[in-house]
Simulated assay, not measured.
Amino acid sequence: MDWTLEVVVVPVSDLDRAVGFYRDRVGFHLDHEVRNEHMHIAQLTPPGSGCSIVVGDLPAQRAMAPGSLHGIQLVVSDARTAHDELTARGVECSEVTSFDERDGSTFFGFSDPDGNSWSVQEIRARAERPLMPGRPPTGG
């Protein structure tokens, strides 16, 4: 039996601001946004990922303080390129740091407007072998 992680709930204080940040600055794809008398949520997916984030007004979001999610990790094949793309879009990022020469040892980070923090790990092998079979590798 496969167990797949497909959605991470990210607590934010302002859904429209969060959508703008994740879609326009970080480059996530806006899968859908639902607004009705019961809820207002948006689901966004990083390029090449099988896991999305959901921001908005659901019980899971209301149970967490905005900005209280830390250590969410994204993986890219080239940390320097990803860092440069994000900073060019106005995202404040930490410096790219390599702890040693092994693949998977290079990181940088950023936070959303509420303070939810993200770590970006470089795994160079993703350029040739994407994690999700059948999907073409994506850049940075």
Rank of each mutant, 00 (worst) to 15 (best):
V34Y: 04
S68E: 08
D57Q: 05
P46C: 01
H38T: 15
R25Y: 14
I53K: 01
C51K: 04
P66C: 06
R35H: 13
S68P: 00
L74F: 13
Q43E: 14
L44W: 03
G27W: 03
E37P: 10
P46L: 01
P47F: 03
Q43L: 10
M64F: 04
V76S: 06
N36H: 07
I41Y: 07
I41Q: 09
G50A: 15
V34G: 06
H70D: 12
G48T: 05
Q73W: 15
Q61F: 06
L69I: 05
I53S: 12
I41G: 00
G71K: 06
A42I: 03
A60Q: 10
A60R: 01
Q73R: 13
R25M: 12
D57P: 09
A63C: 01
P59V: 00
A42L: 10
V75T: 09
S52E: 13
Q61T: 10
G48S: 01
L30Y: 08
I41F: 00
M64R: 02
A42T: 12
D57F: 10
L69G: 06
Q61A: 09
S52C: 09
P46W: 09
P66M: 03
D57H: 01
G50P: 11
H32A: 14
V26S: 05
H40L: 00
S49C: 02
P66N: 02
F28R: 10
A63R: 12
S68K: 02
M64W: 01
R25D: 07
M39P: 03
F28C: 11
G50H: 12
A65C: 12
H32L: 07
I53A: 04
G67F: 08
N36W: 06
L58N: 07
Q43M: 10
S68F: 00
G27R: 03
G67V: 00
A65L: 02
A63S: 09
V75N: 06
V76N: 09
L58W: 07
V26D: 03
A65Q: 04
M39H: 11
G48Y: 00
G71V: 11
T45V: 08
D57G: 01
V55S: 12
T45P: 13
H40Y: 10
L74N: 06
R62S: 04
D57R: 01
R25G: 14
S68C: 03
C51F: 08
S68R: 05
L58A: 09
L30H: 07
C51G: 09
V34P: 09
A63Q: 14
D57E: 13
H29W: 12
G50Q: 13
E33F: 04
P47A: 00
H29E: 15
N36Y: 06
V34L: 15
V76W: 07
A60D: 12
H38G: 15
G48C: 02
L58E: 08
G27D: 02
H32V: 14
G48N: 02
R62I: 09
G71W: 11
R25P: 10
S52P: 12
T45R: 03
N36M: 00
R35V: 05
